[in-house]
Amino acid sequence: MVSKKIITSIATSAALASVGFATVGQVVPQFGNQVQTAQAATSAINDYINNNNIQPVSIQYRTGTFSRYFGYENGVGKPEGVVIHETATPGATAENEVTYFNREWPTIQTYVHAFVDDKEILNIHSADYGVWGAGQTANSKYIQVELCEVNTTDQFARSVANQAYYTAFRLVQYGLPFTPGKTVVSHDQVSRMYGETSHTDPVGYFAKWGYSMDQFYDLVGKYYNQLKTNGSTTNNGSENNNSNTNSNNTNGIIRVKATDWSYVILYKLNNDGTMSKISNRALSNGSDWQTDQTKDINGVKYYRVATNEWVPQDKVSQIIKPLA
């Protein structure tokens, strides 16, 4: 848990920002066939998720305020796994937490990649770069996601489904195996492994709902397998169709790549109809993005990947799914 406490941070030289984006939907990753499973653990919560066909919601990418861009110990875009947190703030939603941390991180010296509750998954910092959430060593290794505390069994089930999906999605995105205790770890495990923090989350909060990390691993394994085999968490391989999502079947998916730079420059559409470069954000080469529309400006075709963030045609290396 971050829990508004100061946590040891690392100060590393910054690279050009590849921050979170206010996405138009959800990016569906395209990957290989390797599948690994977690050992199943009996869980009333996981049974409830399965029996009620609860589907995780889409990941929303927001532009966060954390301005420290440092690569992991193996380099930019090379995390080693995901740390599981919980906020220790009863009743605070993902939106509440995002607002708080975007405002207060310079004072509390703490930030994570994403916040999750029963309705939303909000990613606020590029997973290509580290954050300040679990001590110096863990910060240099892991993507970090916070689970918000909720009030009912149904809300808890939906929130852990969202957190497990986010975790599985990141593992698949970065080509990482699903290895409980190694590529997916709790803050409690991080504290015991590295001794740089004393936090024990989410163990206590999970226990309140009769849940455990072993049961969470089982859920992550389920979504990991579905993403590896289908490209989505639904059995038919289609877009996520939960009623809480903003998925749109008319959306396309593009892969971006620049031949002249190690990142892809973004553009914004101005009021006068011209395009201008965005100087403080960029996309990672080879990354996949959902797009919902195109525009032709002065003979150049642009694909929209966020509310007002566009990629020119010459930086689109592959159209994985065309616009309907």
Rank of each mutant, 00 (worst) to 15 (best):
Y61H: 12
E73N: 12
S140L: 07
R68F: 10
T63F: 14
Q55H: 12
Y61L: 14
T65E: 09
N51S: 04
Q55V: 15
I143P: 08
E146C: 03
V82R: 08
F156G: 03
G135I: 08
A127S: 15
Q109V: 12
G130F: 05
E149A: 08
N51H: 02
T137R: 11
I54A: 04
S140F: 02
A157T: 03
P56Q: 08
A92T: 07
R62N: 14
V57G: 04
F156L: 04
T89K: 10
R170K: 12
V116N: 02
I143R: 09
E95G: 14
I54W: 05
V98I: 09
F101K: 11
I124M: 09
I84F: 08
Q109S: 14
I59L: 12
G77D: 08
S67M: 10
V76E: 12
E120T: 07
A94W: 00
T87M: 03
I49Q: 01
R170S: 11
L122D: 07
V76F: 14
S67P: 06
G130P: 07
Y111C: 10
F169D: 13
T99G: 12
Y61T: 11
T87F: 00
Q163S: 02
F66E: 00
G130A: 06
S67R: 09
N123C: 13
Q163D: 02
R170C: 11
I143D: 10
T63R: 14
